[in-house]
Amino acid sequence: MTSTLKGITLKGSAELVAEFFSFGINSILYQRGIYPPETFTRITHYDMSLQLTTDPKLKNYLTNVVCQLKEWLFECTVQKFVLVITCLETNEVLERWQFDIECDKSAKETSAPREKSIKTIQDEIRSVIRQITATVTFLPLLETPCAFDLLVYTDKDLMVPDKWEESGPQIIDQSEEVRLRSFTTSIHKVNSMVAYKRTDSA
């Protein structure tokens, strides 16, 4: 079904990006050991195997977030999406995964599909997720039990929905930052980056 589709619309783009976040969050939670590995199940998507949580509460939470995100993506009002990993006991921020989203707002006016095949986009997404997996080579081991939090940066004039609240940026001081790959659907462009607490060597 995808092979015949040549172009991409705003709606489709929002869906693709939201789907990326869903898999991306799951990957990070699995890779960084925020939830025990037994609570994940392996599925195949983007021609690669990915881990999806089976924890019902977490699943529900993620679905809610991603649904809301999809709406904002469709309205082109999101600027950033951030996953913050904090130490459960001290509430110190240990890792910060930031995804900057650039929306092409002109897509809202014209409904004509853009020229970019879903396959190319998915290839780009795949390499981003691969890179997320590969970050274990330099990220410090998370030794303490951790919690995670999701932050969304939106345009200023947006109404805050019931289930959301305003929050601080939760930035790590003295952090090491690594830019990851980016991908674009030609309507939404997502730049990824991870920041982590600097090692006390050197």
């Binding site: 590969a134 274990v136 080579t137 990220l139 410090p140 081991l141 090491e176 690594v178 830019r179 050197a202």
Partner: peptide
């Protein structure tokens, strides 16, 4: 984006031993 130079660590990720404290990306 300066992506070209940044993928180097990914290309040799198998040759990087993970450290408990992580690595400084510049090093």
């Amino acid at each position: 984006m300066a992506e070209g130079g940044d993928v180097e660590w990914e290309l040799s990720k198998e040759n990087i031993q993970p450290l408990r404290r992580g690595r400084a990306i510049s090093a």
